[in-house]
């Protein structure tokens, strides 16, 4: 009985105009969602942007269109947006004070996306963290370490820190250090090391590898080989070169010395006084 009365009163309140407005608002909202999804997909197909820029523009377009559609729908329903905007202003100040770090990360994220010190897929080092960039988001950057850990680095930290990008250039220099025994023919060893590293298919012929005598060590004469290789070959190359160099030196009779220490025994002379 009560319900019937309530329903009768409600039906008197709902006019045809209300139904039309409500339907229009729902249609605007649905259209806005559809448009936002289309824009998201269209930006995803743009080949001119890199992955992080694409993600940024996709989010801006998606949420921007949703906000516009929601505002239009609310306006159609008769809500006074000025009140909402005023409240939003006050809210923004309040949130701004409470979320300074987030705002800083957000702005830093935008800087990173446009400055592009690295892109998704690059190997970078930030402080003690070293790994592959798997995502650059508005607030943070996700790095996968070589031990398969995911580390979330706030964008503000990245903007303030020194970043080393190991993938920026297509070629990189690799230094390989070898020690040979004192008395070895240094000219022969230099030539042998050069030929051995040049024989590896991943060693670039130019820039020409440099074979330098680094110093006269405690047990060995130390060489540094500075060679260049495509960036993607850097992780595996030193290991293969050390094996080839060890074989080449052994086959040529050049000794790789163990650390040695010479101990001199001096006979004790006993002065016995009677």
């Amino acid at each position: 009985m009560v319900f019937q009365e309530w329903a009768r009163e409600f039906s008197q309140l709902i006019t045809k105009r209300h139904i039309v407005n409500f339907s229009t608002a729902v249609a605007i909202l649905l259209f806005g969602i559809l448009l936002a999804r289309r824009a998201h997909a269209a930006i995803g197909r743009l080949g001119t942007l890199d992955q992080s820029q694409r993600m940024l523009f996709q989010r801006i377009a998606y949420y921007g269109l949703l906000v516009i559609a929601t505002a239009a729908a609310l306006d159609t329903l008769g809500f006074d947006l000025k009140v909402l905007l005023g409240a939003a202003g006050v809210l923004t100040v309040a949130i701004g004070f409470a979320a300074q770090t987030s705002a800083s990360n957000l702005i830093s994220g935008l800087f990173l996306m446009f400055e592009r010190p690295f892109v998704v897929g690059n190997t970078i080092a930030v402080g003690e963290i070293r790994g592959e960039v798997i995502a650059i988001d508005l607030m943070s950057t996700k790095i996968r370490t070589f031990t398969n850990l995911m580390i979330r680095v706030p964008n503000e930290t990245l903007v303030k820190s020194n970043i080393t990008n190991y993938s920026y250039f297509p070629i990189r220099r690799v230094d390989v250090e070898v020690g040979v025994a004192y008395g070895s023919d240094l000219a022969f060893v230099s030539e042998l090391l050069k030929q051995t590293v040049l024989a590896h298919p991943e060693t670039l012929r130019e820039p020409v590898p440099l074979i330098l005598v680094k110093g006269l060590g405690a047990s060995s004469i130390d060489f540094t080989i500075q060679l260049w290789t495509p960036t993607e070959s850097v992780p595996g190359l030193p290991s293969e070169l050390y094996q080839a160099i060890e074989l080449a030196l052994k086959a040529s009779g050049v000794e790789i010395p163990f650390p040695t220490q010479t101990v001199l025994h001096r006979p004790l002379t006993a002065h016995v006084t009677s």
């Binding site: 250039f169 297509p170 070629i171 220099r173 040049l198 298919p201 991943e202 060693t203 670039l204 012929r205 130019e206 820039p207 260049w228 290789t229 495509p230």
Partner: peptide, 20 residues
């Protein structure tokens, strides 16, 4: 036959990877 690689450019900053 096995190819080697080289960098063809005025310096390590500008150029392109090539076969040799």
């Amino acid at each position: 036959e096995p190819f080697s690689k080289t960098w063809f450019g005025p310096n390590a900053l500008y150029g392109e990877l090539a076969l040799s």
